[in-house]
Design a protein around this nucleic acid. Sequence first.
DNA 1: TATTGTTATACTCTATAACTATA
DNA 2: TATAGTTATAGAGTATAACAATA
Lengths: 170, 170
Amino acid sequence: MTTRRPTAGASARDAVDISTIGPNFGLAVRLLDLRLMKRASEVFGDLSLTPATATALLAIDANPGVRHGELADALRIQRPNLTKMLNQLVDDGLLRRGESAGDRRLVTFALTPRGSRAADSVRTTMAALDEQALSGLSRDEQETLFALIDKLTRALDETNADDAALLEAK
Amino acid sequence: MTTRRPTAGASARDAVDISTIGPNFGLAVRLLDLRLMKRASEVFGDLSLTPATATALLAIDANPGVRHGELADALRIQRPNLTKMLNQLVDDGLLRRGESAGDRRLVTFALTPRGSRAADSVRTTMAALDEQALSGLSRDEQETLFALIDKLTRALDETNADDAALLEAK
DNA sequence: TATTGTTATACTCTATAACTATA
DNA sequence: TATAGTTATAGAGTATAACAATA
């Protein structure tokens, strides 16, 4: 089969072996994310979406009428960035803006019929992407990897929350 | 302890549960990468480096006299982007530009004494970052996670290489 | 003609500060 | 005063196209 680009860390063809700089967990995660994002960007581009807007679309589909700020917190992104993404989805006719009855500052979002169809495509696409990406691992390995990544992310959120609490308490 | 930000996926405080959009491996990796990059950026900022330039510095330290193009291939980034990063490291006095004897198109790079000291700091910093980031997992879990991420990244590189080969063959 | 490295440009994702309109 | 959302801006990381110098 192919022998032109054997592996990520070291390669018979590469003159420089990046693995000589030693194990580096952060770098390993970044290299993996890079590859996943690249494939996802290509595929979502056909739907005029990006990985970030596609995720927002699914989140709104699962939580119709969600408020702007709630969504930003859930997606762990800053509000100004969410505003830009949602504006584009509204312009593209996938999202509908709404208001809250009582507090007129609040803005809510829900999918249009066209947005619902797009969400279906996104779900199918994401599932296919995940399956393809994970096809190199056994079922057990897939579940282990998923669980460890999730566990680590939660642990890091704890640490950050503790840091923030310390800063506030100082 | 802290109870204000319990977990990443679901939270007692969050009004919106992002996990309702279903399992999504790409998203999980992106959320983890985001947290690791944020901490790394803060720490490397003290050294006037970014995660990317810090990595380039270590790679050159491990491969003195490396060529521009070789390094870009090893780091899996495009040449124009590497040019910008290396220019800054040269401007900061961490890197020394060199030429190849025969082919005058080739550009090589090596660390200055100050660059060597910076590389030492980077190594220490990276090790500390990794240890802190992984402290939420057992030793076994750490090794399993690292191995699975590496395995998956290599598998994705294979896939991309096959795709490229197909395109060329068409 | 092909290759090395550079310049110019653009896009994705993220972040902070300052503003508005409501409360 | 405080909060929800917006506008404006910036920065890190990536990508492609077009170019100069050299082979």
